[in-house]
């Protein structure tokens, strides 16, 4: 999981995914027949283009939710905006890194004994980041408007438990990096997309370029097994295997491939679970608006996605890769 650690630790707020892309390209480019990066930053790797049969496209997005500098105020505090969906409750007093130089900062939080309105939720537009500067001019030496801001969270593992930022979707990026080492009986394009968190932008362009017949999105998705107790019965659960989407707000997964996944998992003793319907959307939703294709979304359940730190189980990642490997040679038959 060394590669997963490097991917999670790399900064990659939407629009600034270069570092993540470079790691992937360097790590697994040698397994591809061809490698291409488009103008937006999507990374394409193809295998077996000469093979007959439906064209399979894997997709995982390289970007993560984060923040962006809007401006610096008179006192040297940094005003910022969210990039992607972030709950402001998850931000107070968190450590961040700003811009290319990864300047450390902390999102301001008044100590409890000074905050008479402690229970009031502060909207992101009213929050500031403190980098310890005492004036605007001093702060501006370290950041400028538009600079991306990532959560300052480093990957940690304890046995099966993994803790990091950006499992959504570095988990998918990692799984694709493992899968590209495999042989396939049909033409395959692996696309590490950009700007998924801000409107599925890269996925749409990628689908228009590749025009696949089948698209398999690999994701890190929100686990629902979180207290309070009323929610504990809600799936997906961490540790219960790959999460298979039936229907989300952007797409209905292909029924035949979904059944192939569940039947193959059952036969192979791979745990699996369905995603709760109508939650979120993925690049598959953008792709089906470009071309008629069979979409499938497979994900690793992670607690606390879209926040500074998330948890995942190693075994869920391994089982998701196992499941894809188990079905890959049957896809051609199901689609024909």
């Amino acid at each position: 999981m060394e590669l997963l650690k490097r991917l999670c630790d790399a900064p990659g707020v939407s629009g600034y995914e270069d570092e993540v892309r470079e790691i992937i390209q360097k790590e697994v480019g040698i397994f591809a027949d061809s490698v291409y990066v488009d103008h937006l930053g999507n990374l394409f790797m193809t295998k077996g283009a000469e093979k007959k049969g439906p064209h399979l496209m894997f997709a995982a997005h390289t970007d993560e939710v984060g923040l962006m500098v809007k401006r610096v105020d008179e006192g040297g505090f940094i005003r910022f905006m969210a990039v992607g969906g972030i709950d402001p409750r998850a931000l107070m007093a968190k450590r961040v890194r700003i811009g290319k130089d990864k300047t450390p900062g902390v999102i301001c939080a008044k100590p409890v004994h000074l905050d008479k309105e402690e229970k009031k939720l502060i909207p992101i537009k009213d929050m500031r980041i403190d980098i310890g500067a005492s004036s605007r001019s001093q702060a501006e030496r370290y950041c400028e408007p538009g600079a991306p801001i990532v959560f300052d969270t480093m990957f940690e593992s304890r046995g099966d438990i993994l803790q990091a930022k950006a499992f959504d979707d570095r988990a998918g990026c990692y799984m694709m990096a493992e899968l590209i080492k495999e042989d396939f009986n049909l033409p395959v394009t692996f696309v590490w997309t950009v700007q998924e968190e801000v409107g599925l932008r890269g996925g749409r362009l990628a689908a228009a370029r590749v025009r696949p017949d089948l698209m398999m999105v690999l994701e890190g998705t929100g686990a629902g097994d979180i207290p309070p107790a009323a929610d504990v019965a809600r799936n997906p659960f961490m540790g219960k295997g790959p999460v298979i989407t039936i229907l989300d707000w952007s797409v209905s997964a292909n029924q035949d491939i979904t059944e192939l996944l569940t039947e193959t998992a059952d036969k192979g003793g791979i745990p699996w679970q369905y995603k709760r319907p109508l939650i979120g959307g993925t690049d598959a939703g953008a792709a089906v608006r470009v071309k008629a294709l069979a979409p499938v979304v497979l994900a690793v359940p992670c607690r606390y996605i879209h926040s500074p730190v998330a948890l995942a189980y190693r075994k869920d990642i391994i089982n998701t890769i196992r499941l894809v490997k188990s079905v890959k040679d049957q896809l051609r038959e199901v689609l024909s």
Binding site: W249, S250, V251, S252, L278, G285, V288, A292, L293
Partner: peptide, 16 residues
């Protein structure tokens, strides 16, 4: 077309 209730998901592909 399919998927009218998920933002007309199938519509544009049907016209492709």
């Amino acid at each position: 077309y399919t998927g009218r209730y998920i933002k007309a998901a199938g519509l544009l592909a049907a016209l492709d």
